[in-house]
Design a protein around this nucleic acid. Sequence first.
DNA 1: TATTGTTATACTCTATAACTATA
DNA 2: TATAGTTATAGAGTATAACAATA
Lengths: 159, 159
Amino acid sequence: MIMVTPSRKPRVAADAKDGAETLDFGMLPGLVGYVLRRAQLRVFEDFIRSFEPLALRPAQFSALLLIEANPGRSQREIAAGLGIQRPNFVAMMDEFEARGLARRTRSEVDRRSHALMLTPAGTDLLVRAKAVVAEHEARATAGLSEPDRLRLLALLKAM
Amino acid sequence: MIMVTPSRKPRVAADAKDGAETLDFGMLPGLVGYVLRRAQLRVFEDFIRSFEPLALRPAQFSALLLIEANPGRSQREIAAGLGIQRPNFVAMMDEFEARGLARRTRSEVDRRSHALMLTPAGTDLLVRAKAVVAEHEARATAGLSEPDRLRLLALLKAM
DNA sequence: TATTGTTATACTCTATAACTATA
DNA sequence: TATAGTTATAGAGTATAACAATA
């Protein structure tokens, strides 16, 4: 039985930038959905800014990683792994091919499907991306000790 | 110095529903951005389903809570607290008024701004919404003990 | 001149139906 | 008949510029 205590008292600063307003957030800071969403937006903000020089969005970075680690898999398999709809993965693969980062080749065993793999340029970009993501990760978890970072990952996965 | 260990070995099930495929997720399960995003999507999925009977989206629930806890505040203040742009809050307030959940009244002190407050119907809806959110929270954190749930909230806020 | 609420607009993400070519 | 990739499309959510009323 979870109580979700209202905790009405603590008034927190809404946003220092637009006035010295103070808002009562009520039960929101006690709800995982709210706190999770806010944290995720903060982390993605830094991720997106960090990856602007490489022109990669979060989903694109994940897609390239998945293709690298699973060469020869189909679009359906990679899209399913990413949790995105198959139709929405088409444009992403189109861009990867246009930028010379990945290739589609018709599968020999099932000529309906595409075998995906990175190009050398795609592999090179991922090398740089992994350095960028390590710096991003350090910034995103700057407020946590390494044991706390691992504990956070474990708690998120246990949900 | 964070190592972001690749941990290439563990192959995890991609999705049991569409074949017995197995994908190597590489470093992704070690990145807070990725794990956070996945957890947030899972939680929101349950939230959205839970709130379908009340016809409330997550942002709408937060907005009603904020208006209830801070009656008389302006659209700019509530929108800033929610982290949404002022223009995008206009349609949400329009819907609240159309559904009889909240009201805008011109402020006496600054006739440019609107003083927001809930209607009795809005207050009633929030009573039901708070019961729904407590059940949702229990489901979302079913895999966590109460100390772990609090630890998770603390770690997310410490990031 | 600056700010509040507003309109219009655009861009990203996401979700679904339906087509084609293969199986 | 079912599936992979594709096209078209529609709906959220989000971001910015500009306007009228008011400060």
